[in-house]
């Protein structure tokens, strides 16, 4: 079915399929759980989900590419979600993005070679009064300046050495 794709441990999906057994409308929920497990959605996992849910692989791929939450490639250890909502835009989100790109050498949707950081711009994190804002994994950083953003990234890099 999928000769050249990843060899993921598909047994990890069993409890997910069990949890949603009989629910014909759970495709998005299943994809979310799968992404929690693998960190992204490997192609062989998408095929397995299509097979198990009775959907065509095209439909599963269609849903996985429609929503911004789903990733088809692995992400770095630290996922930077940079908010580019309206309030952040007005308060200088572009300059923060520029600073991060300068510091990390990668842009939106890319991962650094050492696998430490991925950058993803998002529409709104809902912390508008702290704008400009970014989230790194579970932590939110607000009232950013270009220097502050670089500093935060540097500290995380130091800490992971």
């Amino acid at each position: 079915m999928c000769a050249n794709c990843e060899k993921s441990d598909l047994s990890l999906l069993t409890p997910v399929f069990e949890a949603f057994a009989g629910d014909d409308h759970a495709l998005i929920s299943i994809l979310q759980k799968a992404q929690d497990i693998y960190g992204y959605l490997p192609t062989d996992v998408l095929y397995a989900i299509a097979d198990k849910t009775g959907n065509s692989p095209a439909k599963v791929m269609g849903v996985a590419t429609f929503y911004t939450q789903f990733r088809l490639k692995p992400v770095g250890k630290n996922l930077i979600l940079l908010c580019k909502g309206t309030a952040c835009h007005v308060n200088g989100a572009d300059s923060i993005e520029k600073a991060l790109v300068e510091e990390l050498g990668v842009g939106d949707g890319e991962t650094t070679d050492d696998g430490l950081f991925s950058i993803k711009t998002v529409a709104c994190l809902g912390c508008c009064s702290l704008s400009p804002v970014m989230m790194i994994n579970e932590d939110t950083y607000g009232s950013l300046t270009p220097a502050k953003a670089k500093d935060i990234v540097r500290k995380i890099r130091e800490a992971s050495k």
Partner: peptide, 25 residues
């Protein structure tokens, strides 16, 4: 609870229903 997966258009009620059904919104 159904968690959305990130699509602005899903604020539109019929798109939201499509998404609830597990489809592209």
């Amino acid at each position: 609870i159904k968690a959305g997966a990130g699509a602005f258009v899903c604020g539109e009620e019929t798109a939201l229903i499509e998404s609830l059904e597990g489809n592209r919104g």
